[in-house]
Design a binder for these strands. Structure first.
Lengths: 219, 219
DNA sequence: TTCCACTTGTGAACGATTTCACAAGCAGGG
DNA sequence: CCCTGCTTGTGAAATCGTTCACAAGTGGAA
């Protein structure tokens, strides 16, 4: 925990705002590397494709620590955002499914850089169990509960085929996990106190193809 | 184009609704495989984690073809959704970047199943250019415009490192592409008439870690 | 000290999306 | 035919998110 913890207002922050925090943080880190000390809302807005008012409103959820006339301290804002996004601790992640998607996710560098360490990999293919992915031993599905406990897993990434996903996730939840990132093309049903985010490859593509279809028709 | 084209009201449909259409379609295809002929809004809602009213409101954007007392014809609704999502034509897709993410996307079966055919792959690694990914020859970055035209590309998937993304996309847009799916951790700036969807691996993870942090603090 | 240019923080207006509530339509049974 | 149970379609209300507009704070220059 850093110096800014105490200032962080912890009222419920809209989901859309939290997602933009991730983006702001990304830009701020760029600025920090460039040696820039302060940014105005307008600058962040331009970088992030929103408006200055939006940026200020978003940041106002965290309290008020901008300087009027000057903008925000890059260092301070970076700290606050990292704190509110929970990026100051290391999160222990279990990856379910070591197929193509799973493997690509495992190897995705930015995860580790942000403190998400994949410490557990589960797959039910007997040919894979016992082999290593990166430095991590792939364990069989039957070891799931065991592995989650032993490795003190904080959150789980689901990258298994859709038909298997729900059953597996039920076990994950029963094992006490409270956050799931789902890449399987299935709508998972979870208790309300478990945080769930779905990433669907096809939903985005289909929304694009809808947009293209509309354009086409109008001409 | 299928029988239902004429019925599709083409007023502007909210983005959130279009995204749900993708989900509904997925479930409907399940139902169709199971030999179910009609579904009520409540059933779709339960499957998709929303409410019956939401489903009905969404579908009302497409006109009204449910049967009161009965629900919707699975076959008819499937047709309408496929049509409005533009899934009745084949879309020719170019993949920029044949790294880990790019490769995983290329190999992702559901894309092809939905009519998204990756016909072009571009990478700037000289070691990769000239080799094949699946059946597709990887071409150099300098051939970009050329490739897009020759292959009659409809939409582009960006899976290159963030620093390169903007420059590449500018060229893509100049070449007349009107839809971009961006996997690079960069906020792309495009003209308004180009449809853009961002998929960010880290944004979702960070929103989860924010959720976890909140839970922790409350106890 | 005063003025000026700049920027934040925020209530209020606005717009979009979701939920509610209910009239109207359909099928099946008696 | 009428009644009952079920489900759609949709205005109206409620909720949620974004944009506007401006008072108030800041640093620097004169």
């Amino acid at each position: 925990m850093n110096d800014f913890t105490s200032r962080v207002a912890d009222a419920k922050i809209p989901d859309a705002t939290v997602r933009r925090f991730s983006l702001y943080l990304r830009y701020l880190e760029d600025f920090e590397r460039s040696g820039i000390n302060s940014v105005a809302s307008g600058v962040l807005a331009e970088r992030g494709g929103t408006t200055a008012a939006q940026v200020r409103k978003d940041l106002s959820f965290l309290g008020s620590f901008g300087k009027r006339g000057l903008g925000y301290s890059v260092r301070e804002l970076t700290g606050v955002l990292r704190d509110v996004l929970g990026l100051d601790s290391v999160w222990r992640v279990a990856l379910l499914g070591a197929g193509r998607i799973g493997t690509a996710l495992f190897r995705y560098e930015p995860f580790r850089a942000r403190g998400f360490h994949i410490t557990t990999v589960i797959d039910n293919d007997p040919g894979k169990v016992g082999t290593r992915l990166g430095g991590v031993m792939i364990r069989g599905e039957h070891e799931l509960e065991c592995a989650l406990t032993e490795d003190r897993t904080d959150l789980v990434i689901v990258a298994v085929p859709a038909p298997v996903a729900q059953a597996l996730v039920d076990r994950v939840v029963a094992a006490g996990i409270r956050a799931v990132l789902n890449y399987a093309p299935a709508q998972l049903r979870l208790p309300d106190d478990v945080a769930l985010r779905n990433v669907s490859m096809t939903v985005e593509l289909e929304s694009l193809s809808h947009a293209l279809t509309r354009v086409r028709r109008c001409r």
